[in-house]
């Protein structure tokens, strides 16, 4: 019963998304991407643009990401070693 409801919900969802979404594959890159490709090397000096965005333009995101990783380790440590008697 639950599987049937889930299947119907997913099928309706899928039809609504797949037939109304007008995203073309392989079009032009976005405004921010064009800006990074044009100015990225001269502004940061790194050839690899993914690394340039990750460690320079959006380093604040990376800081949050490392904090999330630290909290995950802390959670695993607490759950697995918390009840050592």
């Amino acid at each position: 019963m639950k599987a049937m409801i889930g299947f119907i919900i997913v099928v309706i969802f899928g039809i609504l998304i797949l037939f109304n979404l007008k995203l073309e594959f392989g079009g032009e890159s976005g405004i921010a991407g064009e800006m990074y490709i044009e100015k990225g090397v001269s502004e940061t000096g790194a050839v690899n643009l993914v690394s340039a965005i990750l460690a320079n333009y959006r380093a604040y995101d990376t800081l949050g990401e490392t904090i999330i990783f630290f909290i995950a380790i802390l959670g695993v440590f607490t759950v697995l070693k918390g009840d050592k008697k």
């Binding site: 940061t44 790194a46 990376t62």
Partner: peptide, 12 residues
């Protein structure tokens, strides 16, 4: 090259 990017990569 790249200013602070290699050092940030090392730290990460």
């Amino acid at each position: 090259s790249g200013g602070t990017i290699p050092f940030i990569n090392l730290a990460i």
